[in-house]
């Protein structure tokens, strides 16, 4: 067989936002690479199966493919926490290097192999934000008793500091934060958060997003379906995937800063966690990391591989470090 020409793909995000738009972009790149012969037929979230059931359905073959945030599957494949939301992790550039020039993709694929799922990591979102808060965070003690909507490893870090981390369904976050049912929530990058309207109901927008340094999104394909494609087609998928990745890395960062400026104008107070707070969070993360590495050998292997790779990159940049550029000075007639 020649493989499906229109790959049925269940997206876990609406294609109306940047995260889901990645799937649309991938489909366009795929059409370019295959001369219009292959594309994705993208279904909105819940159209075929509920978002949390996409991985399972791709594995069983109920649906052919999915467009996901990799961290969604941490309940099933625990190492996806590392790809989706790794606290105090590397920059998108260093992470990308590990994925494509290190062991990143290979280790992820190994974890997916038992489920018969082929993974193509095709999209990276920049570091998320520290979240929307209605309470000031001045010291680590301010996390004591704070109720926040956050999942995964970041939630476990906050638990160490005494926060109550909660599970609130997507549609109810807005009202829960507005009415004080929760004190804080993390969601995504500014571009996506703004569309959710959090700026109307939260006072503070905290940075940095310590709980999620860079997060990966991917196309997952049922292995049997993937194997129907010829070697040439598979290579075309990889090409389209890299083009999409490059696009996401290029367009995202400047757009976030433009959005933040708009948010500030509409009255949101953009803040940075004080250094002692970040330090306390990082110390708590080291504890969580220790537990995770003890309980989860696959996570340990991937984490160590990632850190070793990142070490190489950092050493290079450290050697090459220059002072920050001096801005162009119009007064001196430079422009």
């Amino acid at each position: 067989a020649a493989g499906p020409e229109k790959l049925n793909t269940a997206s876990v995000f609406s294609t109306q936002n940047f995260l889901g738009a990645g799937a649309v972009r991938l489909s366009e790149e795929l059409q370019k690479a295959t001369g219009g012969e292959v594309s994705l037929e993208i279904h909105e979230p819940g159209d075929l199966v509920p978002p949390f059931e996409v991985f399972n359905s791709v594995s069983s073959g109920a649906i052919q493919a999915g467009w996901d945030w990799i961290g969604y599957w941490a309940g099933t494949v625990p190492i996806t926490n590392l790809y989706g939301a790794l606290p105090f992790g590397p920059s998108p550039e260093a992470f990308m290097s590990w994925m494509w020039a290190g062991e990143g993709t290979e280790l992820l694929q190994q974890a997916y192999d038992p489920y018969g799922v082929k993974v193509l990591p095709c999209f990276i979102s920049p570091q998320e934000t520290g979240g929307w808060y209605n309470k000031e965070i001045n010291t680590p003690e301010d996390f004591e008793g704070l109720s926040m909507r956050i999942s995964g490893l970041g939630a476990r870090v906050l638990n160490k500091l005494g926060a109550s981390t909660q599970l609130i369904p997507g549609g109810e976050i807005y009202l829960s934060l507005e009415r004080g049912r929760i004190d804080a929530t993390e969601f995504s990058i500014p571009q996506v958060d703004k569309a959710m309207g959090f700026d109307d109901i939260a006072k503070y927008y905290y940075f940095p997003g310590w709980h999620q340094s860079a997060s990966w999104f991917s196309l997952i394909v049922n292995q049997a379906v993937w194997d129907e494609y010829s070697e040439e087609r598979k290579a075309q998928f990889e090409t389209a995937c890299r083009a999409t990745l490059q696009w996401s890395m290029a367009v995202a960062p400047p757009q976030q800063v433009r959005t933040i400026r708009e948010l500030e104008e509409s009255g949101v107070e953009v803040r940075r966690f004080p250094d002692p707070v970040i330090e306390a969070l990082q110390n708590a993360w080291v504890e969580v990391r220790k537990e995770e590495m003890a309980n989860n050998p696959a996570f340990k292997e991937a984490y160590e591989s990632l850190m070793e790779h990142v070490g190489l990159i950092e050493a290079w940049y450290e050697l090459q470090e220059l002072p920050a550029p001096i801005p162009v000075d119009a007064a001196q007639g430079e422009s």
Partner: peptide, 10 residues
């Protein structure tokens, strides 16, 4: 198989 997933998730 999507039906089972839809019942579970929905």
């Amino acid at each position: 198989g999507t039906v089972g997933s839809r019942i579970f998730g929905g």
